[in-house]
């Protein structure tokens, strides 16, 4: 019936036209795809279970090999720092909470042993896209590594000898600088005190009756008369 009358916008609107219209086919296809994937995963899980193995997400070929850590985890660097923790956190490992947080797996661990165990786990390896396998080294690799390490060690030793001398020099320089700084500060402070005293004297003596505005320096006068020049603060003048 609205059709008969026509609309102000040219096109007639039904009651529910303000609602979003969904492309049913598209969503049906999506759901089908997802269900297929879930079914596949369920099947893989079931097969793994039947074979007595643990299920992990299958590799997609973009993974990299695991490599050895090249530094020790320094937990002590977090001493004295504080982090904000969401109010709901604190129970269980899921999500960000107080402790060591793993970005990739969204888990929080309460101590370093648990943390390191987690980083070694297959779950973590898969979620950071590593295979959990390490390439074997050849004798040539080993040889090269030994040479490199030996070089590094020699270099360090040489450095240490040099840097000890240098460090002493640097230290002496620093001490000299510090002393200079202190001297300067002391002198400045003395200078300032002297200037203050002078200005205070000036205030007391300089004002003649002719330059006064009525009432302006009453306080000063009174204080001068009573023998002091201010209420402790020196910035007044």
């Amino acid at each position: 019936m609205s059709n008969n009358k026509g609309s102000a916008y040219g096109q007639a609107a039904s009651d529910t036209d303000f609602r979003k219209t969904y492309d049913l086919d598209e969503y049906a296809a999506k759901a089908k795809e997802r269900e297929a994937a879930e079914k596949e995963e369920r099947k893989a899980r079931w097969e793994a279970k039947m074979a007595g193995k643990k299920y992990y997400k299958p590799l997609d070929g973009s993974e990299t090999l695991t490599t050895a850590r090249n530094a020790t985890q320094d937990f002590s660097r977090m001493v004295g720092t504080s982090t904000l923790v969401p109010a709901g956190a604190g129970v269980g490992k899921r999500g960000r909470g107080a402790g060591f947080y793993c970005e990739a797996c969204d888990l929080t661990f309460k101590d370093n042993l648990q943390w390191i165990e987690h980083t070694n786990s297959m779950q973590h390896q898969r979620s950071i896209g590593q295979t959990g396998e390490v390439r074997k080294a050849t004798a040539a690799d080993v040889h090269a590594r030994i040479v490199a390490l030996w070089e590094r060690q020699q270099e360090r030793e040489r450095e240490q000898v040099v840097s000890l001398k240098e460090r002493l020099e640097v230290r002496a320089e620093e001490e000299e600088k510090e002393r200079e700084e202190k001297r300067k500060k002391r002198k400045e402070a003395e200078e300032r005190r002297r200037l203050e005293k002078e200005t205070a004297l000036k205030v007391k003596t300089e004002y003649g009756e002719d330059v006064r505005v009525e009432g302006e320096h009453d306080e000063d006068d009174m204080m001068a008369a009573m023998g002091f020049t201010g209420f402790g603060t020196t910035t007044k003048k």
């Binding site: 050895a68 850590r69 042993l113 165990e117 390490l149």
Partner: peptide, 21 residues
Amino acid sequence: CYFYKEQCFGVNEADIVDRVV
């Protein structure tokens, strides 16, 4: 032990030398 978990994970023959040193 912690050392084993931290330092002996993902180590190959060449990394062994690193760890020893």
